[in-house]
Design a protein around this nucleic acid. Sequence first.
RNA 1: GGAUGGGUGGCAGAGUGGUCGAAUGCGCCGGUCUCGAAAACCGGUAUAGCGGCAACGUUAUCGUGGGUUCAAAUCCCACCCCAUCCGCCA
Length: 430
Amino acid sequence: MIDPDILRKDPDILRAALSKRGAPDITDDLIAKNQHLRSLKTQWQAAQEERGQLSKTIGAFLQAGDTASAEAAKARVALLKETLDTLKTQQDQAEEDFQNAWQAVPNIPLPEIPEGKDETDNVDQHRWGTPRPDQTPAHELIADTVHWAEYAAVSAVRMSGTRFVMLTGMLARLERALGQFMLDVHTREHGYKEVSPPYLVHAHALFGTGQLPKFEEDQFKTTTGHYLIPTAEVPLTNMVADMIISQGLPLRFTAHTPCFRSEAGSAGRDTAGLIRLHQFHKVELVSITTPEEAAEEHERMTRCAEVILERLELPYRRVLLCTGDMGFTAEKTYDLEVWMPAQQTYREISSCSRFGTFQARRMNARYRREDTGATAFVHTLNGSGLAVGRTLGALLENFFQDSYSPLPLPKVLHPYMGGITELELSPSRD
RNA sequence: GGAUGGGUGGCAGAGUGGUCGAAUGCGCCGGUCUCGAAAACCGGUAUAGCGGCAACGUUAUCGUGGGUUCAAAUCCCACCCCAUCCGCCA
């Protein structure tokens, strides 16, 4: 969430931000709710004060043995109590109203974010590699010709339902190789600390990163009340929740985890292949830094993800998301889109965002400034480096030769494949 | 799953009904001392509302919510979370 002070100091900034995002302008409503709350709070505190004073005199009267005065004061407090109860009820209601409204306010886009309605208004930053112009079979069809894949896919659906897949043999190994490769590059070359986090978290952790309460229906919840993490962003960022970091910023964390998403509302979209699943693997990057360093860290993090695509020889482009396509919690986002030859289009494979203090405020993550010694909210960032399943799909399509030739693998993966350099395709599917 | 203990300021940790926003220690900031540092000593060190240009003043906040009471960190109830032991288990 953003700083509520903005309502009193610069409501026009909020107004402009909502307008840029194409959201309804609820600024005046928020200001009214906030004023109402503060006014009630003041009244309640004044009544509290009065009661406190009276109570003290009662104690004094009783000690002095002046029972009559004590009783008189007691009667006055009894009267006050009704006022107090009413005010408290009103204040609680006002607090809830304001908080509910305030938590639903999206982050303020940075000034450089292009205004736009949807993904068609995103702005190309740069492209890398040469997209192959010929249309290949879709990656799920290529996968079918690799070792029992179809059999496995059918099994997965049978036991878990749609949007689940099972990889076997060389495909399973390739997925593992991709995850290991990404993790190794980020930990050895990019300075990220490897983390093996919990996959089940409490609600407040999801609140901290912004998935709750607004996106409850996108999450899987267990019978114990835990939530399955939709991304490692949740546990990695929450590592600094309720903390005051006194040194060592920036903190950089990476983890290779499964991610679970209910994909509510996406019925019928991307139903085939590895693009949109209830469960997928992802290597996540998270940085905790200062306001001064956040911009540079964002560029650095995005480069860390791009390096993976380049080493894997996968053509991609970087786009700057416009206000309409940017997530609720972000103030700036780059998407990396990989070339998918079967569809002859670029598809999202990584998303790298800055959040300013939006998440830090929600999870109370602070640091101590070296210059002033004061505490301030940290800035948080995260990015995918990369989505492993989608990378696997992109790799199959981009490296596909023809139905009768082995599919070569990018050189960097050879060591991770135990020296295997290509995948045998068996169109006959014995 | 069974049993017990516990959630207090940056941290540790006192505090079982009023004068407690809260002892003490540590950490941190400022100062004295010193050529400088350490030590020692002195002072400061949470968040929010309201008032004030400000210094500051004032009120509220001791896991969350409810209750008892003139008065709650302190008593009662519910919930959440944490820890330890036992059982079970990869």
